[in-house]
Design a binder for these strands. Structure first.
Lengths: 182, 182
DNA sequence: GTCTATACGCCGATAGAC
DNA sequence: GTCTATCGGCGTATAGAC
């Protein structure tokens, strides 16, 4: 028997569409109409899978938690060290984690309370791992470098939604991290 | 004679209210109704001073340009060096520049095209001054540390609008900048 | 499971009184 | 200069057909 809840494909498609719109055009553009259209369903269809917009956000935040937990494990075990891993993974590479993280950031920016709470938790998790690698004093500087990377990725992403070359400068950041270590 | 355009008080009050709402509750909450109420005028009164919302944004961006120009001058002339000045001024201190900058960031986050352009320009200006101080390779790491400071200020500012103590860690950042110099 | 139709409130903006 | 009244449009959500 296969009683384990198989997630409908449409559900994931809708969530992906929501995420994509948040990333490319911001929270204001991520309306139910727009999400439904992008996912290829009607508004009514969307609202069958998610009773309301809050439910959609809640599931997106679950996705964030899940992908982040995986990434934290990889970060803790990274041979190059947690700090270098963190910086490298902070440059936009269109990974699933990159995507949910930026999408969640958009919600935090419009002061969505629960998202703000979660994001603060994310920061705390990263800070702890960084402290174990480069020491408590240099953890925050490294964390902020990574955050700055995301922040600038936002600025460089025009309304079109394309993510221009941001990789330039990562070597500099890694070099900086090396100098901060020890 | 005093023919030079004296700015009406109400105009500034409206702009301040708009800015405050953007900072405290995000772009979505900064509606014409909310801004008018906070400024103590009616919606119609607001729309006498600013024909539409875009006009309000445009003037806010002018305020950003003006305050930023002043700050860039101070940064270039700072005895402690541009980098240290930059980090120190990046911690939230509720200064006029802090306020417009964060307000503008809110607009950038919903992908407001013109604001995105301006903010990119701001980053470029800072980067140039930092490069002159700590060298081209370390300019970006320092810039991103400052951006991270702002980014985290956003996360720590709940819907209530209070700005919790973020200053903790600035000493660490300044120490990091010292290590990156030369 | 997915669609259409519709209710309803809020937002930006206009018209015009005072 | 500032207000009230009002409009059109959009965004969320419900009801119910298929």
């Amino acid at each position: 028997m296969e009683a384990m809840a198989r997630k409908p494909v449409a559900r994931e498609a809708i969530l992906d569409a929501f995420e994509a719109l948040l990333i490319a055009e911001g929270e204001r553009a991520a309306t139910l109409d727009a999400v439904a259209a992008r996912a290829g369903v009607s508004k009514g269809g969307l609202l069958y899978h998610f009773p309301n917009k809050e439910a959609m956000i809640a599931v997106l935040l679950e996705r964030l938690d899940r992908l982040l937990a995986e990434d934290l494990a990889a970060m803790a075990a990274a041979p190059e060290g947690a700090a270098a891993y963190f910086i490298r993974s902070s440059v936009w590479a269109d990974t699933p984690l990159d995507r949910v993280f930026v999408a969640a950031t958009r919600l935090a920016e419009v002061a969505h309370a629960e998202t703000l709470r979660r994001m603060a938790g994310v920061q705390a998790s990263w800070l702890a791992l960084l402290a174990a690698d480069v020491g408590p004093a240099m953890a925050r500087p490294v964390l902020y470098m990574g955050d700055g990377l995301y922040f600038n990725a936002m600025l460089d992403r025009g309304p079109g939604g394309s993510a221009p070359e941001l990789a330039g400068g990562v070597e500099d950041l890694l070099a900086a991290v090396e100098r901060l270590r020890n």
